[in-house]
Design a binder for these strands. Structure first.
Length: 586
DNA sequence: AAGTCTTGTCATCTC
DNA sequence: CAGAGATGACAAGAC
């Protein structure tokens, strides 16, 4: 019998220390103290223990039911399914377990009985198994309701089976719901940036949440009744269903065809598509929402932050950092070479070097230590007692002020200012290279801001930040260049995105217009046939009316001699054709 | 090795 | 008119 080892649920002091360390890291991401509070965690742990005990009781009773069930079932060696025993003599548990094939099927089960797993281990196993669901495993096992559980209740692959197994009702569903509930809570924390790494029991759940977070609204309705395999399937299937094209179509249509009825066509011809798009909660308006998908906050994985410059790092720049300087896009300017300039001689007496970015490009290609190069080129910056005292070497109060300000600024970036770049690996690599280049420049000039801040702060905040620090000409020029490049980079990305959306939108509009043309042609054809039919009806009606007319002798009028004509006031006259022609000739 | 794609950057235009 | 964003063109790097 499986005994849950409750003491394992109690994190050791070492664990809790680790958790506190993690919390201190996460607090910078904006997580509230209560989320990681020790007593709060203890309460949660106790609650979880109670839940575990209840679950354990349920599982014991379920396991007994399983045994009884297994005693009544027999493994079909061809299909691998369990079928009700047809031979009454085998209807005992011991006989069932002695069948060879069934022994192999029940290895896990019998082993579980001897080797008790703690809930922690089960959760670990659960988390390790689910993200790596094999295709065979991902096939919905619960469809085969004839297969009873052959392994322990907590074996992850079997959980979905229980949820729909009519033989295992109620309690197991509740267990699954509890599990889902826990996962949803964890997911909520993850999505909001409050990653609770403090709870050891949540470690596997965090693994879980790695593939659950994107489900969002799509799964809120299904998560409670659908096992993770299905959720995972949806998760993978949805991007296909909502293709970038569809996304972009829906984004662009209003822009491209404001006066036309492309939206109506969309409704008319692609109602399903729109439903799908809408169901994915995609932004339905162009421009402003363009970046939303790309700008989903990901406070934990922000590449820019990884390279954020800390003012405290300026003085700790190492030569090896320069050695891996990746960029060498310009030649070495001998005039600006530090080798030719006296270390103690300022390039410009007033400290206004006036180096723009292009100058920096020339300078940075020097073979030696970049920082030493800069130190020689901008000697004043590196003289602690010089008039251009570097910011990192300013008065202690100022340094403290800067250090105190830095942590405040960065969460602000994470909350909105920062626009994370593209996340593809190679793109990130390239971005990192570029970032490093600008970072190195900023570091060389001891600019007291991060590249992130320089690039992403709003104008007002940027100006305010700049006004709070005395920067020399070189620093100002570099900051301006970094900001210009960063802004332009984002602008170029947006521009290309818009261009692609325009192309996709035009293609979609072309398709819509083709379909509209087909529809109008068909309508024209229908109208022509309808008109033809009405003319025929009118003609027969005319002849019918004409045939009913009689002269004074009771003879019918000849259609050749007379015709019926209607005036503008609606009166109908019988007009002799000859007279009519005479009138016309007159 | 050549071709293509992606991305960053600059110059210029537009608002 | 200054400044920010948009965009065409080009270069560099990856594949």
């Amino acid at each position: 019998m499986m005994e849950i080892e409750l003491p394992k649920m109690q994190p050791s002091q070492q664990d809790m220390d680790l958790i506190d360390i993690l919390w201190r890291q996460d607090i910078d991401l904006g997580a509230g103290r209560e989320v990681f509070d020790f007593s709060y965690r203890q309460k949660e742990v106790q609650l979880q223990r109670q839940r575990e005990q209840e679950e354990e009781k349920r599982q014991q009773s379920l396991r007994e039911q399983e045994k009884a069930l297994l005693a009544q079932l027999q493994l079909d060696e061809e299909t691998g399914e369990f079928v009700p025993r047809s031979i009454p003599t085998n209807n005992t548990l011991t006989q069932a377990n002695t069948a060879p094939a069934e022994i192999t099927q029940n290895v896990a089960f019998t082993e579980e009985e001897g080797d008790a797993m703690s809930f922690d281990e089960c959760m670990q196993l659960l988390a390790e198994t689910f993200p790596l669901v094999e295709p065979a495993e991902s096939a919905p096992p619960c469809l085969d309701v004839s297969v009873p559980p052959t392994t322990d209740l907590m074996m992850p692959g079997e959980i979905p089976m229980f949820t729909q197994n009519p033989l295992m009702p109620g309690p197991m569903d509740q267990t699954w719901m509890d599990l889902q509930h826990c996962l949803n809570i964890q997911e909520t924390l993850d999505m909001s940036g409050y990653v609770n790494t403090a709870q050891p029991a949540n470690v596997p759940e965090s693994n879980y949440s790695q593939y659950l977070p994107k489900l969002g609204d799509v799964t809120t309705g299904t998560a409670e009744v659908c096992p993770p395999e299905y959720i995972n399937t949806y998760d993978g299937a949805f991007p296909n269903m909502v293709s970038p094209n569809l996304n972009q179509m829906s984004l662009k249509t209003p822009d491209i065809n404001k006066s036309f009825v492309a939206d109506e066509f969309c409704d008319m011809f692609y109602p399903d598509m729109e439903a799908k798009v809408n169901s994915a909660s995609l932004p339905c308006e162009g421009g402003n929402t363009d970046g939303q998908l790309d700008e989903l906050p990901d406070p934990l994985l922000k590449p820019m932050d990884l390279h954020s410059l800390s003012p405290g790092d300026f003085s700790t720049g190492k030569p090896e950092d320069m050695a891996e300087f990746p960029d060498s896009d310009s030649g070495l300017s001998l005039d600006a070479s530090p080798k030719t300039s006296s270390p103690g001689k300022s390039l410009n007496g007033d400290g206004s070097f006036g180096f723009s970015d292009s100058d920096m490009d020339e300078m940075e290609s020097g073979p030696g230590s970049m920082e030493s190069d800069y130190a020689e080129m901008f000697p004043l910056l590196f003289q602690s007692d010089g008039p251009q005292q570097s910011l990192s070497e300013k008065s202690p109060t100022e340094t403290q002020e800067m250090n105190a300000k830095q942590p405040k600024m960065e969460p602000a970036e994470a909350s909105g200012y920062s626009k994370p770049p593209f996340t593809k690996d190679k793109q990130k690599k390239r971005s990192e290279a570029r970032l490093t280049r600008d970072e190195e420049r900023a570091r060389a000039l001891q600019i007291p801001f991060t590249v992130d801040m320089i690039t992403n702060l709003p104008v007002d905040d940027f100006n305010e930040m700049m006004s709070k620090h005395q920067l020399n000409e070189a620093q100002l020029a570099l900051v301006r260049d970094i900001r210009r490049r960063g802004k332009n980079k984002v602008a170029a990305q947006n521009c290309r995105k818009r261009k692609m959306e325009n192309i996709v939108g035009l293609e979609y509009e072309l398709d819509s217009l083709k379909e509209e043309k087909d529809r109008l042609m068909k309508e024209k054809s229908d109208n022509s046939s309808s008109l033809r039919k009405m003319k025929q009806q009118l003609n027969s009606l005319y002849l019918e009316v004409f045939s009913m007319l009689r002269d004074e002798q009771g003879k019918p009028y000849s259609p050749n001699d007379y015709s019926l004509q209607q005036t503008s006031d609606g009166s109908v006259f019988l007009v002799p054709r000859i007279k009519k022609t005479l009138i016309k000739s007159n």
